[in-house]
Amino acid sequence: MEFLSNYIYYIGAFGLIFIGLFIILVKHNLIKVIIGIGILDTGVNLFLIAVGYISKGTAPIFSKAGLDANNMVDPVPQALVLTSIVIGVAILALALSLAIRLYKHYGTLDLRKIKEQRW
């Protein structure tokens, strides 16, 4: 039980990463694949945040006097996650616009049926 409470964030993060990778590898519908990319991104972000956590820590903001600096969590992963979220949004927006165009061209989002380009 102690193991679970210690590692629950890691388990959650890598659970999301594996779900995302599995969706991307297995599913054929483009929208589902894009959702998989989103889940993968979220998992990575959660992992980064979990790396910076310290036990019973507070946010790294000195909003009032008397806050203990030793009790604050690592600010760097939070800054990284901010960047990573924005990158995720950018990729999702571009992927969705491509999906719109693809649907207009082929009338389907099934990746098995979209095989204009061959080896």
């Binding site: 210690n6 310290i54 790294p60 604050m72 969590v73 600010p75």
Partner: peptide, 19 residues
């Protein structure tokens, strides 16, 4: 992950920023 214990103390860089 065995080398990255969860909830451990801050890293060098993070400590510098907070201080």
């Amino acid at each position: 992950l065995q080398d990255i214990p969860f909830g451990a103390a801050k890293t060098k860089v993070g400590h510098y920023y907070i201080d």
